[in-house]
Design a protein around this nucleic acid. Structure first.
Length: 267
DNA sequence: CTTCTTACA
DNA sequence: TGTAAGCA
């Protein structure tokens, strides 16, 4: 909530015309209107004869586009959206929105001097790697400077940086590390999206169509609160399983003889 | 004139 | 969902 990643241009509060909105969401003006007519998209504020949209509209449009892309029908999406809507009406008061919006991490950001960081990488200073790290949000240049020339960085996830340090200590080149993280980021985003979507469909859809009772609202908050540990547990278990499988597979191909059994024990 | 809307395919 | 013509 307090961490702002300066990823995009500062002018996020801009008012959008329907054309900009459509383009930004990768759809067409025609569709924006169609979604509005079907109640998937909230009506735009009107200034005279002009339609004024803002980022809330953009976000919803992008959500619609994603769900559509995944083969959901417009009717189905509307049902989900309605469920969401009726939840936030009451949930806004109860902090349901905050629960969903809050960063799913309990890590404390730290400040790290450039010299100290270079030090932890055994004196290796790879400007390109730093550049990628900044782009990925692993490092955030402190406001006074910008770009790769900053003297100090904000590290949102010290744990993640530690991973990089460890890998580097093991002899993995920095470009390989940043490149791998970039790939991992995409895969994980995909995972998270699936999980949230799955939850929405199978859990929140039962609240569709009516205002939430107090009882239901409390339930919903509890459910959302449980989502993170559930997701983590599932990913943890599956990751462990997959790692064991893949490692075993690799070892079978690479190690022969009695050594194989010994190594396999270690997994 | 441009932007939005409506209607038709 | 694209396109063309009418409306503000």
């Amino acid at each position: 909530m307090k961490l702002q990643v300066p990823s995009q241009g500062a002018g996020d509060r801009a008012e959008l015309r329907i054309d900009d909105l459509a383009r930004a969401a990768g759809t067409t003006v025609r569709n924006v209107r169609a979604y509005q007519d079907r109640g998937l998209l909230p009506p735009a504020a009107r200034r005279g004869r002009a339609n004024i949209y803002e980022q809330a509209h953009l976000e919803r449009l992008q959500l619609i586009a994603q769900l559509l892309d995944r083969g959901h029908t417009l009717a189905g999406i509307k049902e989900l959206l309605d469920a969401w809507e009726s939840g936030t009406g009451l949930g806004g008061v109860l902090g349901l929105v905050a629960e969903v919006t809050a960063p799913w991490s309990d890590e404390e950001p730290v400040r790290l001097g450039r010299a100290a960081m270079v030090e932890s990488f055994h004196g290796v200073e790879d400007l390109h790697a730093i550049d990628v790290a900044v782009r990925l949000g692993v490092l955030i240049p402190v406001p006074e400077d910008d770009g790769v020339d900053a003297d100090e960085f904000l590290v949102p996830s010290p744990g993640l940086l530690d991973v990089a340090v460890e890998l580097h200590a093991l002899g993995v080149p920095l470009p390989a590390i940043t490149g791998h993280l970039e790939e991992l980021r995409q895969d994980i985003t995909h995972l998270a999206r699936r999980f949230v979507e799955f939850s929405a469909i199978h859990i929140f859809v039962r609240y569709a169509g009516h205002q939430l009772t107090d009882q239901e609202a409390v339930e919903a908050v509890g459910t959302v609160r449980r989502l993170r540990p559930l997701a983590r547990a599932a990913v943890d278990a599956e990751l462990a399983r997959a790692m064991r499988l893949e490692a075993t597979r690799l070892l079978d191909a690479a190690v022969a003889g009695p050594l194989r059994e010994l190594v396999r024990e270690e997994l």
